[in-house]
Amino acid sequence: MPEVIFPGPEGRLEGRYHPQKEKDAPIAIVLHPHPQFGGTMNNKVVYNLHYAFYNMGFTVLRFNFRGVGRSQGEYDQGVGELSDAASALDYLQSMNQNSKHCWVAGFSFGAWIGMQLLMRRPEITGFVSVAPPANMYDFSFLAPCPASGLIINGLADRVAPPQDTRSLVGKLQEQKGITITHHEIEGADHFFQGAHMDTLIDNVTDYVKRRLTETTR
């Protein structure tokens, strides 16, 4: 899988780009957890999400936010990171101009950034939000949420407690015109360690495959 360097708002951004042979393959971008707490594009959840999407036929890009790895710039409280994500999506789209479907997936801090990107980019047709930190960040910008998606979290998550995720899901599920699917994984912590990682990826794969089937009928 080729390492790529592409332009971001504060200089170059470092990523991993995994193309399909089909020119009209769907595309997906995967966003990593908090840069100041060790989050990188090689985080296990991000890595596994990347390959899950690739194995479902997506052309996939994951990348390091500014100030992480070889990406230039400094941490910017989420504001600059959202701009980074938009630049990454621009890059991915420029390489895949015939793609009919565009998804965003994010883990923890990356889920928060991904949901903001969703609001700005109407071409995004689906999202996967893993362990969104609804206790730490305001998600009220999702009014209305423009696309259907999956929110998934662990019931033993102490970083982003399940009750906060349920509250977020409840608000989103009241909105008309979209369907928010919510899965909770028994015994899984914030990082889905051990066998919980397989359960996470199985849930994501089942959901995305079902959505793709529905849109191609």
Score class of each variant (00 low, 15 high):
residue 164 D to S: 12
residue 57 G to P: 08
residue 44 K to S: 08
residue 155 L to K: 13
residue 110 G to N: 06
residue 165 T to E: 13
residue 50 H to E: 13
residue 136 M to F: 13
residue 51 Y to P: 01
residue 38 G to M: 03
residue 147 A to Y: 05
residue 44 K to Y: 09
residue 112 W to N: 02
residue 20 Q to E: 15
residue 117 L to G: 11
residue 71 S to W: 05
residue 214 E to L: 06
residue 135 N to Y: 05
residue 19 P to H: 05
residue 26 P to Q: 03
residue 143 A to H: 12
residue 152 I to P: 13
residue 158 R to H: 13
residue 34 H to T: 03
residue 190 H to R: 08
residue 35 P to Q: 05
residue 88 A to E: 08
residue 42 N to V: 00
residue 50 H to K: 07
residue 118 L to A: 11
residue 179 T to P: 00
residue 150 L to Q: 12
residue 28 A to P: 13
residue 148 S to Q: 10
residue 33 P to W: 02
residue 162 P to I: 15
residue 138 D to R: 03
residue 184 E to P: 01
residue 213 T to F: 04
residue 47 Y to T: 13
residue 154 G to I: 01
residue 140 S to M: 04
residue 196 H to K: 14
residue 167 S to F: 01
residue 63 F to Q: 04
residue 191 F to C: 05
residue 189 D to H: 01
residue 183 H to N: 14
residue 5 I to M: 15
residue 195 A to E: 15
residue 61 L to P: 03
residue 4 V to P: 09
residue 108 S to H: 08
residue 92 L to Y: 12
residue 50 H to A: 10
residue 193 Q to D: 07
residue 130 V to D: 06
residue 172 L to T: 09
residue 153 N to K: 02
residue 196 H to G: 01
residue 88 A to N: 07
residue 46 V to D: 14
residue 206 D to V: 12
residue 113 I to M: 10
residue 206 D to M: 06
residue 79 V to Q: 15
residue 193 Q to Y: 05
residue 40 T to V: 11
residue 15 G to E: 05
residue 41 M to S: 09
residue 89 L to R: 07
residue 109 F to V: 02
residue 106 G to H: 11
residue 23 K to S: 14
residue 128 V to H: 11
residue 105 A to M: 05
residue 43 N to H: 03
residue 170 G to E: 13
residue 140 S to K: 10
residue 15 G to A: 02
residue 75 Y to M: 00
residue 87 S to G: 01
residue 204 V to C: 12
residue 48 N to Y: 08
residue 21 K to R: 07
residue 216 T to G: 06
residue 158 R to K: 12
residue 129 S to T: 08
residue 106 G to Y: 09
residue 173 Q to R: 15
residue 210 R to P: 02
residue 1 M to T: 14
residue 38 G to T: 08
residue 83 S to G: 12
residue 109 F to M: 04
residue 119 M to V: 02
residue 39 G to D: 04
residue 54 Y to H: 14
residue 127 F to K: 08
residue 41 M to Q: 13
residue 30 V to I: 15
residue 187 G to K: 04
residue 215 T to H: 03
residue 70 R to D: 15
residue 72 Q to A: 11
residue 80 G to E: 12
residue 75 Y to A: 08
residue 92 L to K: 07
residue 144 P to K: 03
residue 57 G to Q: 14
residue 88 A to T: 11
residue 84 D to T: 02
residue 148 S to H: 13
residue 79 V to F: 13
residue 18 H to A: 03
residue 96 N to M: 02
residue 114 G to A: 05
residue 12 R to C: 00
residue 152 I to N: 11
residue 40 T to P: 07
residue 137 Y to T: 01
residue 127 F to S: 06
residue 79 V to N: 15
residue 92 L to D: 07
residue 131 A to W: 04
residue 203 N to V: 00
residue 24 D to C: 00
